[in-house]
Simulated assay, not measured.
Amino acid sequence: MSCDVMSDKRQRARIQGSWAKQLPKRSGPTGAASNNYQPNNANAASGSWGSGPQKTSKTFEFYQPTKPIREVPTEKVIELAGDYEISHGPSGVSRLRLLPGFLPPEEADWMFSKLLAELPWSQKTNYRQGEAYGEPRLTCWYGELPYTYAHSTMAANTQWHPLLVTLRQAVEQVSASSFNSLLCNLYRDGHDSIGWHSDDEASLGAKPTIASFSLGDTRVFSLRKQPPPEDNGDYTYVERIRVPLSHGTLLLMEGATQDDWQHQVAKEYHDKGPRINLTFRTTFPEPDRHRPGTKMRFVAKQP
């Protein structure tokens, strides 16, 4: 190849090179990309990438919940004779008084057999959400006034059995209270029961004293405290008490017990014999709700 041809090629290469644009130089380190996580944020930068002031990436922290963990209280058991203040609240003091052996065994045996055979036991029909159901126990009522609960009324009955009159007098003496009515319950076996409730009907007045006397097989009498308003009816974390009521035992519920507590006798499916429970109480005439302007007024009835 002649010298003139080689010179012509070099000249054309210089002219073509003068048209090419150089790529901007990248500052900073080269090589493999970093393993550090970078937030997906256009304003964030790392190392020497980009220009302008650099910002630190946000730090994410985990916070423990501030709501305290609540524990379910241990159920308490009351078995020994004595007076028990089970709660203090805005409604007042709630009290239980337990008197095991209120009647000696021989007398309790004789009374149990007489009442089981001679009281007018029947199964009451109650109503729940408009549907009728038979109570899972037998009952009878004594008192000059009718008694209504669970949307069903028991008629007045002034023909007290003589044994009940004698027993009422003994209960009034030890409780320093007077009673003019009596609800009798017969639990035929462990399948009979009564659900959670309070004896807070208007006819019983404010803070009633209820005297509960038991004959026959032992059954567990359970109580649970009413939940505070912020729990919206949730009974999970309330206080609970268990009281085994044996043959011849008297239990008094006083003060704010019916305001602040509920009670029940739950089913016990193992072998259980019959049990009679007699609950002495004082009832008052209820106001005439059909007369305009009538205010609630309780007038004590003498027994």
Score class of each variant (00 low, 15 high):
Lys55Tyr: 09
Glu61Arg: 13
Thr56Lys: 11
Glu71Asp: 08
Pro73Ala: 04
Gln54Pro: 02
Gln64Thr: 12
Thr66Cys: 05
Ile78Trp: 03
Tyr63Ser: 08
Ser46Thr: 07
Lys67Pro: 01
Phe60His: 12
Gln54Ile: 14
Phe62Trp: 11
Ile69His: 13
Gln54Val: 15
Pro73Trp: 02
Arg70Lys: 12
Ile69Glu: 11
Val77Ala: 06
Pro73Gln: 00
Phe60Ala: 15
Arg70His: 10
Ile69Gln: 13
Gln54Asp: 02
Ser57Glu: 07
Pro65Gln: 08
Gly52Arg: 00
Lys67Gln: 14
Glu75Tyr: 00
Thr66Asp: 05
Lys76Met: 10
Glu61Thr: 09
Lys55Gly: 14
Val77Gln: 01
Thr56Glu: 14
Gln54Gly: 03
Thr59Glu: 12
Pro68Ser: 13
Trp49Asn: 14
Gly52Ile: 03
Lys55Asn: 14
Gly47Arg: 01
Pro68Tyr: 05
Gly47Val: 01
Gln54His: 14
Ser48Gly: 05
Thr59Cys: 08
Trp49Pro: 04
Val72His: 03
Arg70Asp: 09
Val77Gly: 00
Val77Glu: 01
Lys58Ile: 00
Pro68Ala: 15
Phe62Leu: 12
Lys76Trp: 03
Glu75Val: 06
Pro65Arg: 08
Thr66Lys: 07
Val72Leu: 01
Glu71Met: 08
Pro68Gln: 11
Gly52Trp: 02
Ser51Cys: 10
Gly52Tyr: 05
Trp49Thr: 13
Glu71Gly: 03
Gln54Tyr: 11
Lys58Ser: 13
Gln64Asn: 12
Thr74Val: 08
Pro53Val: 03
Ser51Asn: 04
Pro53Ile: 04
Tyr63Asp: 01
Ser46Phe: 08
Pro53Phe: 10
Ser46Glu: 09
Thr56Ser: 15
Tyr63Ile: 06
